[in-house]
Design a protein around this nucleic acid. Structure first.
Length: 363
DNA sequence: AATGCGGGGAT
DNA sequence: ATCCCAGCATT
């Protein structure tokens, strides 16, 4: 959806007023809200990156006591600065902050720049932090889109783009440029974040207490819990497997039916097993496995292929061997010796279909 | 467009 | 356990 489509028929002015007046009445009394000193705003915004307000408060107070001005921080020993950050995490934040503060001291005469272009060049100042400092310290109507803002606006306007994607943040920045109060951009930006922190929370938003409930499309449709859309990134784990194309004297191949539950349930496959370390005697592991599992005596030949197969949540890396079976092994419902043409009747997963294809090429 | 980077609170 | 937090730099 385009920005124009999203904001069509949205009562921008009423939304602004309801949001900002709620903010002014309900905002928390936080230590970095005592004045608009750009240095203090800056420090607070860096500390608040991926870090909760309650965690930041004591760090902010100690840090400002120790480094009360930009010049104090610029001239401090890095080790002292790191010590002040100890336990807060993401330590590159504070090393970048000191680098940037030194830059401001030498290149800008100690004045934190007030243009988007210049402030964005400072180390550690990304799109969010730039907008936050510009709007809060200088009253400049720039968007400051963080996780709160994307959550709140995705619900109010029903934006279904995946907020994990980088370009979605750009979409929200464009939206905020339309919505933001030109009279009080500081309150507007902070109000969106405050709303996200206090009312429009991730799991169970307190819609009945929400000052902009009347403007919220998600609430109207009862969809607030579906938003924002965020595709969870699953760390794809690689599983190394050794498999064997096992042939007997009749030219038949051994296949096995997978368990009735779990991954690829009831599909057929070639004998295989996970190997802990790639290259560590897969052959002998296969021989032992075939013997103990199915009483098949086998000789493993050469590795003929490497098959990679990606699932949604894991990746198989299969090393395929040829093999010759001396015995038939235990008769089982889930174990069969079949010819290549008979094999066509059995369901295989794609990764094992790749093995069939290889078998046909070998024959 | 992904990934690494810290640590902790809420559910 | 999992999510997510006033994100950014690097690749």
């Amino acid at each position: 959806m385009s920005v124009a489509e999203i904001t069509a028929s949205f009562p921008i002015e009423a939304f602004r007023e309801d949001l900002i007046s709620w903010y002014k009445d309900n905002k928390r009394d936080l230590p970095w809200r005592k004045d608009q000193d750009p240095y203090k705003v800056w420090v607070s915004e860096i500390m608040l990156q991926q870090t909760r307000v309650d965690t930041v408060i004591p760090y902010f107070q100690r840090f400002l006591a120790q480094f009360p001005t930009l010049e104090h921080l610029a001239q401090a020993e890095e080790e002292k600065v790191l010590k002040a950050w100890e336990g807060l995490g993401y330590y590159s934040r504070v090393r970048n902050l000191q680098t940037a503060v030194k830059e401001v001291s030498t290149s800008y005469g100690g004045q934190v720049p007030s243009s988007p272009e210049k402030i964005s060049k400072l180390k550690g100042v990304g799109p969010y932090t730039a907008g936050a400092i510009l709007s809060i310290a200088y009253g400049i109507p720039e968007p400051a889109v963080d996780g709160n803002v994307m959550r709140v606006l995705s619900r109010i306007l029903i934006v279904e783009d995946d907020i994990a994607k980088a370009k979605t943040r750009v979409l929200f920045e464009t939206l905020v440029r339309e919505l933001i109060s030109k009279e009080d951009p500081s309150s507007f930006n902070q109000a969106l974040m405050e709303l996200g922190a206090l009312i429009c929370t991730p799991q169970s938003p307190a819609c009945l207490l929400c000052p902009v409930q009347a403007h919220c499309r998600a609430f109207e449709q009862g969809r607030q819990k579906e938003l924002p859309v965020k595709v969870k990134k699953i760390k794809v784990k690689t599983v190394d497997l050794a498999a064997v194309l096992l042939r007997n004297q009749e030219g038949r191949y051994l296949i096995h039916r997978r368990p009735s539950e779990g991954l690829l349930a009831n599909l057929w496959e070639f004998p295989n097993l996970p190997v802990r370390y790639r290259g560590k005697d897969e052959e002998q592991t296969l021989v032992s496995f075939l013997e103990s599992e199915w009483e098949v005596e086998a000789t493993i030949g050469e590795a003929i292929s490497r098959i990679s197969h990606i699932f949604s949540h894991l990746k198989w890396d299969i090393q395929l061997f040829t093999g010759y079976a001396h015995t038939k092994g235990r008769e089982q419902e889930d174990l069969r010796w079949v010819t290549l043409s008979e094999m066509e009747q059995y369901p295989f997963s794609v990764s094992h279909q790749k093995i069939i294809k290889l078998a046909k090429e070998v024959e």
